[in-house]
Amino acid sequence: MSSPTIAMNDRPVYLLPGWLNSDPDHWQSEWERRHGDVRVEQNDWEWPRRGDWMARLDEVLQNDARLDATPALLVAHSLGCQLVASWAQHSAHTARVAGALLVAPPDTEREDMPPQLHNWQPIRRPRLPFPAIVVASSDDPFCRPERAAGMAADWGAEFMIAGALGHLNTASGLGAWPEGRALLKRLAD
């Protein structure tokens, strides 16, 4: 794996896409191209297994020796938010993370969850051991705002509503999403 480009006040930035990965027009892909942020690749984007995704994130963070001195920032979208919460509950390496931007966390406890995501129940809710900001949409089809607010509260994260922007993905028309980048900068500072 190549070393991440230094970004955000010399902090490496790792992108954690959700189920099915982030397509080329997604803001995460745009950040990867524009800022050199590094996408954490998973072995199976279609049938994501929580334990496998957690192990992969742990492996990536352990293998970046720079994180001993300069912890990284995590930028999660959708199921990537649930990955951060699950990983943080079990990993011995959470000190390698300075903060997390958690965008559009899905409610994986909904009755209409696709079968591919059933192993992401229950939602892990312990307080995160690093600062975090949860950004939700008022009309996200995968999570009601009050459910997202509840997750943020349990995780000890700041909570923000971005407006009526769906799942805060490509269909939301965010482009490079400078507002999200400003929130990440706030975490970096």
Rank of each mutant, 00 (worst) to 15 (best):
E109C: 07
A136Q: 13
S86M: 04
P105E: 12
D52Y: 04
N9F: 03
T108K: 09
D25A: 07
V97A: 09
L165F: 12
L183A: 07
S2Y: 07
P122W: 07
Q121M: 07
S137W: 08
M1N: 03
G80E: 07
P106V: 09
P122Y: 05
E32Q: 14
S3I: 04
A95R: 15
L174W: 07
G173A: 09
W27T: 13
Q82N: 15
R147W: 11
T108L: 14
L16E: 00
A95Y: 11
R124K: 15
G51W: 02
R125N: 06
P178E: 09
S22W: 01
P114V: 05
D68Y: 01
V103H: 06
A164M: 00
C143N: 14
L73N: 04
L101Y: 00
D25P: 01
R125C: 10
L83V: 01
K185A: 08
G180D: 15
V135P: 13
D64G: 11
P114N: 03
L15G: 02
R147F: 03
A164I: 01
V134G: 13
D139C: 15
E111R: 12
E111A: 14
A148R: 02
G80C: 07
R125E: 12
D112E: 08
E59F: 09
L184E: 04
A100F: 01
E41K: 00
H26A: 14
A148Y: 01
W155A: 13
L117Y: 03
D10I: 00
I123G: 01
A182E: 07
W47C: 06
Q42T: 00
T170S: 15
E41S: 03
M1T: 08
Q116I: 02
G51A: 13
Q116H: 04
D68F: 02
M151P: 03
N9G: 05
L61A: 03
D23W: 01
D68T: 06
D154V: 10
E111M: 01
A72E: 03
D64F: 12
A65W: 13
S78V: 09
R127V: 03
